[in-house]
Design a protein around this nucleic acid. Structure first.
Lengths: 143, 143
DNA sequence: GCGAACACTTGACAAAGTCCAGATTTAGAC
DNA sequence: GTCTAAATCTGGACTTTGTCAAGTGTTCGC
């Protein structure tokens, strides 16, 4: 779909910055806000940090972009929304990849005892070591 | 168990700060580092911010305390370790409660396609609204 | 009680993100 | 094409969370 149309459909004004941010997140999933700013600058020359946060915030609010905030890392953004996939992060190199849910469709939304809470999202992050870091031998810091 | 003994058993020196931090985390689970510092100051008068981070880090390393880092929130700490429980956070009031795993024991460690990663931990956080915030009516900010 | 190792304090520093006032750009009407 | 109102973007200061490094104080084994 035409990105401009996408923005309009969600009641958002179309600006060069928004198009560039959208393109940056699409083209490089799991980017940090800083990565996005870099990419946008490559594309349209310049953007303020505030505009990046602002645009990302608006996109997250309208559901066009998903925000992921792993421990010890700045927030990351991706445009894969609408499904229930999770994330897998290497403790050594920090690389993040998508994984589909193990048990089926949205199993994680059914906690055994929700204490009366109305759950609308499950954030699942798997921590471990990627094949390359495993091949490179055990990390000295990990024993 | 006597907290002092607990520390010794894990090869840690016993200090007033460590005892107080341990007590603070035990007495008020899901505390932030700042909450812990407050509680410790109430208990023993004073502690430096660095010491709080230091002690919490040591306790997490030795497995006496677990660190949770939800999106958009500072790190939180709890002393319920050794089981595979997860957390449930209210989007409105920010309250966090424990929930047991829906599917059984450590189901979340079995991602369908781990891409060759060796997974050693699954961090699961459920987001939603607590009964009280639901009873209080829908949040204007949420539609 | 003494000494070595460990832990705590203090202060500077860094990263990530937010707030605010003012200038610029966009959308819509004429 | 031009105008106006509303939304957006810019730039700088600021807050929060956490880390680093050097020096001082405390704990533990003898």
């Amino acid at each position: 779909m035409d990105p401009s149309e996408l923005l309009r459909q969600h009641g958002l004004q179309v600006t060069a910055q928004r198009l560039a941010v959208l393109a940056a997140v699409s083209g490089r999933p799991h980017s940090t806000a800083d990565d996005v700013a870099e990419a946008v600058r490559t594309e349209i020359g310049a953007i303020s940090r505030q505009a990046v946060y602002n645009v990302l915030g608006v996109l997250v609010d309208t559901g066009l972009v998903r925000r992921i905030q792993p421990a010890g890392s700045p927030a990351r953004y991706e445009d894969r929304v609408g499904d229930n996939h999770h994330h897998l992060i290497c403790r050594t190199c920090g690389r993040m990849v998508d994984v589909d849910c193990a048990v089926g469709a949205k199993p994680c939304l059914s906690a055994a005892d929700a204490c009366g809470y109305e759950i609308d999202e499950a954030e699942v992050i798997f921590w471990g070591y990627c094949p390359e870091c495993l091949a490179r031998g055990p990390d000295p810091a990990e024993g």
